[in-house]
């Protein structure tokens, strides 16, 4: 009997210590992608926008990749949302691409930022990676550096002569030419985006966050992007792509929709 009582007390002592060693239950996060112009939801196919260079323009569609999506802690450590490269294809025409769910358990805690790569980094951006549409339709020609478009942003603008001209604001690997036909060097135009936030993730709770692409920023943040100057296509124009990417770093914002409770 004495032994039984002793065992019972030992068990009582052990219980709390076990509880302490148990890992915290994971949190999850849902990211909703929103494309906006001047704070309002993007409206496609109508000539209702004017960029910083004064070009009236419309957008027909935006298709793009983001990758290596991760939450960042104050010490700089990262908590990826996926176990792999976390490559996501987003398309204004395909609503099922507008929401991203963390696909791995996320450690609860306080996060001070969201970080991702716009497009695909040099390691990830290999030709043949995607064989199925719609991702495969984003391929970037081998002759221009290969891999995939980071983004296809298509639309039209009104020229000073009143004519409507189509544009393909396509970003990917750039080229440096020695003549009009021979690319001597390729330029990785992808860039990292860091968005500060104050996010507290709690165990077993899902937090909803909105990632906003502020479309107008592609044409204004650092350099007023003039369609009349750059024309309707820039895949072989590194200077234009560089300006665009420098603008693009400021084209994103994060909003916490509902913090975990």
């Amino acid at each position: 009997m004495n032994k039984t009582i002793l065992c019972f007390f030992c068990f009582l002592f052990l219980l709390p210590s076990c509880r302490k060693n148990q890992p915290e239950k994971p949190a999850s996060i849902q990211l909703t992608i929103r494309h906006s112009v001047e704070g309002n939801l993007l409206v496609v196919d109508t000539m209702r926008y004017v960029n910083a260079a004064g070009n009236p323009f419309l957008i027909t569609e935006i298709q793009w990749f983001l990758s290596h999506l991760a939450l960042q802690k104050s010490d700089g450590s990262l908590e990826p949302l996926a176990d792999d490269e976390g490559i996501y294809y987003l398309d204004t025409d395909l609503s099922d691409t507008w929401t991203i769910h963390s696909s791995r358990p996320i450690n609860p805690g306080v996060y001070t930022g969201l970080k991702f790569v716009f497009g695909l980094n040099q390691t990830d951006n290999t030709s043949g990676r995607f064989v199925n549409p719609p991702e495969s339709f984003m391929f970037w020609p081998e002759q221009l550096g290969g891999g995939y478009h980071y983004m296809k942003l298509n639309g039209k603008w009104r020229r000073p002569d009143g004519l409507i001209a189509p544009f393909n604001f396509h970003l990917g690997i750039g080229q440096v030419y020695d003549s009009i036909t021979d690319a001597v060097r390729f330029v990785q135009n992808y860039f990292e985006v860091e968005l500060p936030c104050n996010l507290q993730l709690k165990p077993e709770k899902q937090t909803s966050v909105e990632l906003e692409m502020k479309v107008e920023q592609w044409f204004s943040a650092r350099h007023p992007y003039d369609f009349d100057f750059w024309g309707g296509h820039i895949m072989q124009n590194q200077a234009a792509m560089q300006q665009a990417c420098e603008n693009g770093k400021y084209a994103f914002a994060i909003h916490i929709l509902n913090a975990s409770e």
Partner: peptide, 22 residues
């Protein structure tokens, strides 16, 4: 011809008609 097919400064066929990646 392949280069023309695959480049915007060329014939720019690939966006609708695929190519090496499609």
């Amino acid at each position: 011809g392949y280069v023309l097919f695959m480049t915007e400064e060329g014939a720019d066929c690939f966006h609708c008609h695929g190519g090496g990646g499609n």
